[in-house]
Design a binder for these strands. Structure first.
Length: 419
DNA sequence: TCTGGGGTCCTAGGACCC
DNA sequence: TCTGGGGTCCTAGGACCC
């Protein structure tokens, strides 16, 4: 089984260059929303030492001096070009999981050794049809695909495609990779791993899974196994709906008044609610969060969030705003200089208005169906609203129903017992 | 003066139960 | 001196991703 990772090179910069060819060959930086910091850099800018996330206001002068061209981001454009790249992949490959705006995992199974050839054709087609250069890494697991892709970018002779098949080649590439450069390992986990003497990706591949689990839980164990070529993360081509929808903004200046936070929160909610409705989803809870600036170490720091559960799931803006403001009242403390606030909706597909029953299918020894149904019940109708469980059997059907006390209605075990 | 915004998944620990 | 033990459920927050 082979998986490929297609990644657009310096995606936002590549998009800008499509419409401004004079930017080719020059150092270019694309800035985040409020022109806050660098979110994309051309190769030339990287070579000048421009770091990801570097705040513009601190480097403005230096970048200008070095001849760096700066662009504000244009997400509508990037989204459009992303869709074009993804449709080409969807058209020309057997399976695709869109992972982010500029990346997709591809099912490269069943190609019997032609993977590299296919990848090169894919790459050429995308370049020709969209003008966006991509890199492709091909290997047995997703985590290795990230490594291979990186290698495809770094090694010029690879021509943008890298296949890492044998243990020897994998070992060789991994031994040159710092542990923090592994997908899923960043500063914190890196620090803990180094304390154990694990400094490179090769060290991690050779580490005992039990040791990794002890240090960083199942997540770290999975990464280690994936580096060995053991598949733990599946290609997920289901088009899942969003599980949460967030809206937040930095204020750009300190805010202290509650009323100002209330206005901001209300506008966040209406943005998120619009998004929610556009995706035909509904929300069961609203979380509001606020915090002070970690970049002002002399300020007293405070951050908090609170979750409010709706009685009935809703995508109605006023109702959601009401909940968000209630949450804000719980966490607001006067006397702090807030620089950021936001709200989070938990999103899911609504039951039809007429729907009064949810059914779990499956055989009697399989509890998963029931658990999944309970999950839906909890999210759609809220906790404590279910008051009956029934078990139906087809073919010579029989049925029994019992009332449950609200306290227990969310526990699938209790329902299983009744059923 | 000015440091993004939008996500996912996992887990520690408190509340509660018998 | 020492204050049960085994369990579930939920949420806030951590860590990571692009």
């Amino acid at each position: 089984m082979m998986v490929g990772l297609v990644d657009c090179n310096n995606f936002y910069v590549s998009c800008e260059r499509l419409f401004q060819p004079q930017l080719r060959g020059r150092p270019v930086v694309v800035l985040s929303n409020n022109d806050g910091c660098a979110v994309a850099r051309s190769e030339e800018a990287k070579q000048l030492g421009v770091k990801m996330g570097a705040p513009w206001h601190l480097h403005r002068a230096a970048w200008k001096q070095a001849g760096v061209t700066v662009r504000s981001s244009n997400y509508a454009l990037y989204g459009d070009l992303s869709n074009r790249v993804m449709s080409i992949l969807r058209m020309l490959t057997p399976g695709i999981e869109v992972y982010s705006i500029d990346e997709a995992f591809i099912d490269f199974g069943g190609m019997g050794g032609r993977e590299e050839q296919v990848a090169r054709e894919l790459r050429a087609t995308i370049l020709q049809w969209t003008g966006i250069p991509v890199s492709i890494g091909i290997v047995p697991t997703k985590t290795l695909a990230k490594v291979a892709n990186r290698s495809a970018k770094k090694v010029p002779v690879s021509g943008g495609v890298r296949v890492l098949l044998t243990d020897e080649v994998q070992q060789q590439v991994l031994s040159k990779l710092e542990v923090e450069d592994i997908w899923g390992v960043a500063t914190r986990l890196g620090r803990r791993l180094r304390a154990l003497g694990i400094a490179t990706a090769a060290d991690m591949r050779n580490a005992a899974p039990e040791a990794l689990r002890k240090e960083g839980g199942v997540v770290l164990e999975r990464i280690g196994r994936e580096l060995r070529g053991e598949r733990c993360l599946q290609l997920d081509d289901a088009t899942r709906s969003a599980k949460s929808i967030m809206a937040s903004r930095s204020f750009g200046r300190p805010v202290t008044e509650r009323s100002e936070l209330e206005q901001a929160v209300a506008s966040f909610v209406s943005r998120a609610a619009e998004k929610l409705r556009r995706q035909h989803l509904t929300a069961g809870t609203v979380t509001t969060f606020i915090h002070t600036s970690p970049f002002r170490p002399t300020d007293r720091q405070y951050g908090a969030s609170a979750l409010v559960r709706l009685c009935v799931a809703s995508s109605n803006t006023p109702k959601l705003i009401q909940a968000a403001l209630q949450a804000l009242r719980e966490i607001y403390r006067p006397g702090f200089r807030y620089v950021k606030a936001g709200i989070l909706l938990d999103a899911f597909e609504p039951a039809g208005e007429e729907q009064t029953h949810l059914w779990a299918g499956g055989d009697s020894e399989n509890e998963r169906g029931l658990m999944a149904t309970m999950d839906r019940v909890n999210r759609i109708w809220g906790r404590g609203t279910l008051n009956m469980a029934a078990c139906g059997v087809r073919n010579g059907w029989s049925m029994r129903a019992e009332h449950l006390s609200p306290r227990y209605t969310t526990r699938w075990q209790d329902l299983l017992h009744v059923a």
